[in-house]
Design a protein around this nucleic acid. Structure first.
Lengths: 120, 120
DNA sequence: AGTGAATATAGATAGATATCAATATTATGA
DNA sequence: TCATAATATTGATATCTATCTATATTCACT
């Protein structure tokens, strides 16, 4: 229980991650800030309703959905759907485009690719 | 507000996902059960401390850590570290191996690869 | 301007979970 | 078998967030 067991040194001088996109988790040490950023995005994906959203959009021939379609499809209230869309939009996973009364959401494929690279 | 806007049909007869590992999120419709499973794993990765754990293990030349090292390194209490290790172990992200008093944890690379394929 | 539909925000609540202190369990070695 | 170190479990607490209802905002059309 007491500190007989030595801790791992925090600094190892490994190459800095590329700053433009998410740093890889398995090569090179990540800063606390970076860990927070990556964790935040994974948390966004940690909700079945949001995954279903991605899944639905990807299944559309048009590759987009109107927000209003989702209320009935997901079986959630309109504010809840709106909340999820906002969370995903702010996480960079979706784009939104207003066309008249409706708002269309699309996947950001690059963001997903980025996340994939985090895990490699 | 009222239901003028049509919902997306839930059944589209797309090919069933391969049952052996995580189904891809962007091709083929996922069942609610599958969505839950995938979400659960992402939630495990949605904690900075756990990401730091993965990052630490990957940075070791031996590709493994003793649990006791992590307490000081992560700056968390021993029960908290134990909890995170358990969560990751049960999510299939880590293996554990007892050697004497110590328990060594390693990454499950296949599990991470699986997750990557979910996002493609 | 006024109406109605689509979307967003505010506020409240319930459930999940990260964290800790205290304690239990397991393994080693004297 | 006893002491000690490593690990796990228990129980409590605080924070986070998904969800809802109610309300506000935005837009198109007459």
């Amino acid at each position: 229980m007491t500190a007989r067991c030595m801790s791992i040194p925090l600094i190892m001088n490994l190459p800095k991650p590329i700053p433009c996109c998410c740093p890889p988790l398995l090569s090179g040490r990540l800063e606390p800030e970076e860990l927070n950023d990556v964790a935040r995005i994974f948390r966004v994906l940690g909700e079945p309703a949001r995954l279903q959203l991605l899944n639905l959009i990807a299944a559309q021939p048009s590759q987009e959905v109107r927000a209003c379609e989702l209320v009935e499809t997901l079986g959630l209230s309109q504010p809840t759907v709106s909340h999820h869309l906002k969370v995903m939009y702010e996480a960079g996973l979706l784009t939104k485009e207003r066309r008249g009364t409706w708002i269309y959401y699309r996947l950001v494929a690059e963001r997903l690719a980025e996340l994939r690279s985090v895990l490699s």
